[in-house]
Design a protein around this nucleic acid. Structure first.
Length: 556
RNA sequence: UGGGGUGUCGCCAAGCGGUAAGGCACUGGUCUCUGACACCAGCAUUACCUAGGUUCGAAUCCUAGCACCCCAGCCA
């Protein structure tokens, strides 16, 4: 709705410049996930960047699986990734690719390198290779196998492909420079032996290319013009270019790097996310507390909110940590416009309206969205006994509290003014019920005598209300960041609270993923899996801002 | 101690020699049948990591420092 004129960033300028200078006629980007886990909010940044740039400049963006390591990759991940990208709102059209579909071509190029004397088969073990690599300050030294003849290398490499050698016994390495200050250029491994079936191409191969040998060439094959990746690949760029320059590839894409997203109070590495799933700390990859796209979806985040977030945080090259509040504000902004309102009481306190006719029931008209009359209204039943939010009553009201208190009058949203006359307690002294009187002349919520009331609270008819499970989520971690082996020590043990709330009857029919604003409380989404019409289950996406609770976040 | 990067408001982020955009957060206030939303105002006043220098003029150019991040997987 509101226009946040998209500010420029170095990638936009880059593309614009390349188009203008004629370096390329059409921009072609790609989102290249490895199918070894579910996509998370950090990937969303990359997706929005790559698809967004293509969209903005009239180009195309490919979805390409960077599936060069079969031991970590699974079909389940491939499917979830495709679903998440689509859900986020992007379309790769015909451009769905797999690096594994290029294996034959890559193999051919590996032989080209061997023939040119630029690659060799090394018999050193992984540990030996590490030793020979040197250190950050000392140059590496040549492997004793570095000077094998082209014939030997070719024969050996073919036998590697033929399955004659066990895993780890040999690798193919590029012959570049063992004393380069850039470790990536100290004869990087190009192929390793892995007798493992591949989720996409099956059991055809027992040698697999490394990321470095697959990525740039795949970009070249697809005619990618701008290969955008995260900063940690910056040191790989010289290798990326070296391979493209030494191989007969159809074109030379360029690599650009940006800073990955860091979000506070959650974890972003796939390794940690996998650990949470495996250890049962969360219900799965799509647990509403997870920063995965499936998790955010279940939590109630909308694709539009996530896209807005990605646009707002910008793109740069400096390490950055984004406040959770930015993400939260994005959903609020989106849902405030779109989500119909509803009445629900999370922590019920019974109220009996003494002067209301015992058997009377009224259907009161409540707008579905005060800001959007076109969204219509609904009828909500009202009776003598209702539930209000426990927090909306204080026996000894603090200064500035203008909800219900002994002797005070408040408005029940779209219903009547009521005044609290009496507090009812149980044997333990706990307040279990309030006795109130209502003013029949305030039907609908306004007084004919012009009397004003400061507070308006929500309510649900006790007789008609529907009890339902509602899950109140809070941040995953108790600290903004968490590193080291004991990072789990920061896990928030109260990241979810399951309660039995009372909802206005109409909410019983909610379909999975229906979203509502429970007035004065927050945005809630019917759980994608557990909610069914007739037996709703809601997840709290985010609370409403609350300037009374003063800055206080997530009461949980 | 090698190489590659980054340093502009609490958190992001524009800016690319001409006198500090915007968003989030925060603080006041207006409005209000959601203490929500909306709206108004304030929020880096020689200040853009520091110190020098060039210039009529610098966050933007130069020099020297400092801090932080990444790289020694047959992971990506």
């Amino acid at each position: 709705m509101s226009e946040n004129p998209t500010t420029s960033n170095f990638l936009r300028s880059m593309v614009a410049g390349d188009l203008q200078s004629g370096r390329c006629q059409k921009v072609v980007t790609r989102f290249p996930p490895e199918p070894n886990g579910y996509l998370h909010i950090g990937h969303a940044k990359s997706i929005c960047l790559n698809f967004g740039l293509a969209q903005e400049f009239g180009g195309t963006c490919h979805l390409r699986f960077d599936d060069t390591n079969p031991v970590k990759e699974e079909m389940e991940y491939i499917e979830s990734i495709k679903a998440s990208v689509r859900w986020l709102g992007f379309d790769w059209g015909e451009n769905l690719y797999y690096a594994s579909d290029y294996f034959e071509q890559l193999y051919t190029w590996a032989e080209v390198l061997i023939v040119a004397g630029k690659a060799y088969v090394d018999d050193l073990s992984a540990e030996e290779i590490r030793g020979y690599r040197g250190s950050l300050t000392e140059p590496g030294k040549a492997s004793p196998w570095r000077e094998r003849s082209v014939e030997d290398n070719l024969a050996l490499f073919r036998r590697m492909r033929g399955g004659e050698f066990p895993d780890g016994s040999k690798v193919l390495r590029a012959k570049i420079d063992m004393s380069s200050p850039n470790l990536n250029l100290r004869d990087p491994v190009l192929y390793r032996i892995l007798h493992a079936p591949h989720p996409h191409v099956g059991a055809r191969w027992c040698i697999y290319p490394m990321y470095d040998f697959a990525h740039g060439q795949s970009d070249a094959i697809e005619g990618i013009t701008h290969s955008i990746c995260t900063l940690e690949f910056e040191d790989h760029r010289p290798l990326y270019n070296w391979l493209l320059e030494n191989l007969p590839v159809p074109g030379h894409p360029r690599q650009y790097e940006f800073a990955r997203l860091n979000l506070g109070y959650t974890v972003m590495s796939k390794r940690k996310l996998l650990q949470l799933v495996k250890d049962g700390d969360v219900g799965g990859w799509d647990d509403p507390r997870m920063p995965t796209l499936d998790g955010l979806r279940r939590r109630g985040y909308t694709p539009a909110a996530i896209r807005l977030f990605c646009e707002r945080i910008g793109v740069g090259r400096s390490d950055s940590w984004i406040d959770l509040s930015v993400l939260e504000d994005c959903v609020r902004e989106d849902l405030n416009e779109k989500a119909p309102r509803a009445l629900a009481v999370l922590k019920p306190l019974k109220v009996v309206i003494d002067n209301y006719p015992p058997e009377q029931v009224e259907e009161l008209e409540v707008p579905n969205h005060p800001g959007h009359p076109e969204m219509g209204s609904r009828k909500v039943p009202f009776g003598r006994e209702i539930y209000i939010e426990r927090d909306d009553f204080e026996e000894f009201p603090a200064k500035g509290f203008f909800r219900l208190a002994p002797g005070r009058e408040v408005r029940l949203r779209c219903a009547y003014f009521i005044r609290c006359e009496e507090i009812v307690r149980d044997a333990g002294g706990e307040i279990v019920e309030l006795r109130c009187n209502y003013d029949p002349a305030t039907r609908g919520g306004s007084a004919t005598d012009g009397r004003k009331v400061k507070g308006t609270i929500h309510w649900v008819s006790a007789r008609h209300g529907v009890t339902a499970e509602v899950r109140l989520y809070d941040r995953l971690l108790t600290t903004a960041s968490s590193t080291g082996d004991d990072w789990k020590a920061a896990l928030n043990t109260r990241s979810v609270e399951v309660i039995a709330a009372v909802l206005e009857p109409g909410l019983a029919g909610a379909a999975p993923e229906d979203r509502f604003q429970f007035e004065r409380l927050g945005y809630f989404c019917a759980d994608r899996h557990d909610s069914h019409p007739g037996a709703p289950v809601f997840n709290r996406t985010v609370t409403l801002r609350d300037s009374w609770g003063k800055g206080g976040q997530s009461p949980a």
